[in-house]
Design a protein around this nucleic acid. Sequence first.
DNA 1: TTCTATATAATAATGATTATCATTTACAAT
DNA 2: ATTGTAAATGATAATCATTATTATATAGAA
Lengths: 135, 135
Amino acid sequence: MDQSDIKEAGLKVTKPRIEILKLLETSEKQHFGAEEIYHELLSKDIKVGIATVYRVLTQFTAAGLIIKHNFEGDQCVFELDRGEHHDHMVDMKSGKIIEFYDEIIEQRQKEIAKEHGFELMEHSLTLYGEFKDKG
Amino acid sequence: MDQSDIKEAGLKVTKPRIEILKLLETSEKQHFGAEEIYHELLSKDIKVGIATVYRVLTQFTAAGLIIKHNFEGDQCVFELDRGEHHDHMVDMKSGKIIEFYDEIIEQRQKEIAKEHGFELMEHSLTLYGEFKDKG
DNA sequence: TTCTATATAATAATGATTATCATTTACAAT
DNA sequence: ATTGTAAATGATAATCATTATTATATAGAA
């Protein structure tokens, strides 16, 4: 996941694009909101406009480089598309997000779609609750 | 589902509240956006302000009379809470929404939550695609 | 019927996101 | 390397869904 991916998406390789991709790639955290990315870059002294952040995120999403999620609430979050589909568990207190994948659920979704004559293109499964272990 | 439900929610029984509840109850369609409800009422010559629609929907959601969904896109949709949990299949072309329930998926979610020390409070599963049968 | 807390409707405000547009830049062709 | 040009940027205005404000109206208890 580097500059060549930006190029392959038919986009020019620019500072904001490189930096946004790098942030998503190298960060501990997996999920970022647009505003969050904006402030993160500013704090690294990378000057960028908020409009550019939104524009680039939209382009990256269209290009399949990143995935956009619409969890509860208003603002969307983005994560790098590492190719491995997964669903999410969201802690409603701390906001912490962890990922999981379950083959049984994936299979059942396909079966259910078929039963209904539905051509399944994508899905979104999110569990909301609270992590009980400390930390 | 009638005026007594409004009263039990600690809310006064007013025209807008009665009409919004009636619309969700008696309509063919199950899912409505706020703006959609607003225009539906106006078309029935029921005068109401958009702010009231939003306020009442928020109150009804808090009271558990209705459920709020955040499907893809920006605007939320609401449906009457008939007590039977279900997930959704959304046709990305026509916007048609149908509901389904699958015990296997429900069970797996609980197991997965337990495995992760996660206290599951709610979840959202939506399949996006297209219905292939003519409809 | 009266009283008062609550609800309403019009409108202003908000917050996230998108559009506009003048300036700048990536990069292909010279 | 220099240039030309389409694409990208950033500042800001606009938009869209939703929420807050507030003066007026009303539900429902007394």
